[in-house]
Design a protein around this nucleic acid. Structure first.
Lengths: 223, 223
DNA sequence: AACATATGTTAGCCGTATTAACATAGACCC
DNA sequence: GGGTCTATGTTAATACGGCTAACATATGTT
């Protein structure tokens, strides 16, 4: 029950609602509102005011649950990472361990999620601050780790299945991650649409992963 | 003289300055200010107020030169695309036509520029609007076309040099673009730094392009 | 010199984030 | 069952940033 976006009046929390002075589960309601607003317009256009209105409370109420706008977005980011992590883990576990298909399917899921909800992709990966110093970063959340871990596991299994040295795993992970992340970004920002209108992004992921891993194995066998 | 960021009091425009009521070349001064602010803090943190102050004018003055904040950013985006296009074309023309090295060097340039100025990369590629409909898009500018065209040219030469069918060119372009764009994005957002601290992004580009193109050629020869 | 145009300035409006001061609902205690 | 504490709302009020309107001053045209 903690996997799906909390739909306000759900389970264990006291969700009274209806005319009461207190909302019952404002925190969840705000996250739901924010999710929808960001899906529709992207994170930059998201306003606390709109989220408050959707939840049926005053503009000041959210500050009882989140330190500020950033805090709300950070909480939503973590929720979204959790959903993606679970999905990636499911895919990894439902396809043959060490197969190229598992890697490809994970990549396609990554892109699908991004394309379905561009605003949310932008939220979780789109931090703009040039300075990495201050405060915890998005991917730093444990759910971000889970996403990354799922990919690493699939690639690790792949190189082991092909008797390759494990030293290369992280390099391969970086290359594959770049492909899927880049494809997702370019698709979302309509760059493919403008420059490569015919492109099928899912096919691109398939072909790119295939080419990359084939080329990698060829390099291994030769040396 | 039109390649470098216009440094305010330069050449053909009347650049009087010094105590005068009129600035002389406010437009360029604003673009320079915006460039610096965005380099430092990213496009979201950029404010018209700060840019005006840096240029030494009132907050309303910029609106004589740009329709609004978006207009200023669009103009800066085009300038930045022009700089990158020229660089990519230079690289393409200075390395053996059809060589894999030319493709790799272009990719490395793409990433270098991004890493050096994350804010500007974010500006030119970071539009968040889910709706592609309204108005001209960033890459739509002719300078965006030039960037893309340089990459296409290099890949086209590569497949021709290897006697591959030209049908695949756009697919390859999409795959290579995804790699460099993804690597740049992940690096900029500190995702590599968190998850793959040892990674060398330039090497990643080299290896990924090499693996991808090797795998592609292998697929060609086999069929 | 008078006008027309381009380019600045000041003042002010509006929308949004955030905080301060106050209000009320529930929970807990006796 | 009433008193008190805490959590959670509400209504101002403040501050900042984009943008426009009304006014001012250069430039240069004739």
């Amino acid at each position: 029950m903690s996997e799906q976006p909390s739909t306000a009046a759900s389970s264990q929390p006291k969700a009274r609602r209806a005319g009461g002075y207190h909302h019952g589960d404002l925190r969840s309601a705000l996250l739901d509102a924010a999710r929808q607003l960001i899906e529709d317009r992207g994170p930059n256009e998201f306003t606390m005011k709109d989220a408050s209105q959707m939840a049926g409370v005053s503009v000041a109420a959210p500050y009882r649950h989140f330190s500020d706008r950033e805090g709300l977005l950070a909480a939503l980011t973590d929720e979204e990472f959790r959903i993606r992590a679970t999905e990636l883990e499911t895919i990894r576990d439902s396809l043959p361990l060490g197969s190229i298909d598992a890697i490809i399917a994970m990549g396609q899921s990554y892109v699908s999620r991004a394309v379905e909800r561009p605003g949310l992709f932008h939220l979780i990966f789109g931090s703009e601050r040039p300075d990495p110093a201050g405060g915890p970063h998005h991917l730093e959340t444990s759910n971000g780790d889970r996403c990354f871990g799922a990919l690493v596991g699939a690639v690790m299994a792949f190189v082991e299945a092909h008797s390759c040295p494990k030293d290369d795993v992280m390099g391969l992970v970086g290359q594959l991650w770049s492909i899927v992340h880049g494809a997702a970004s370019l698709q979302i920002h309509h760059n493919f649409q403008r420059m490569l209108p015919e492109i099928d992004t899912q096919a691109l992921i398939h072909d790119a992963a295939h080419n990359l891993l084939t080329g990698y194995l060829a390099g291994q066998n030769r040396s």
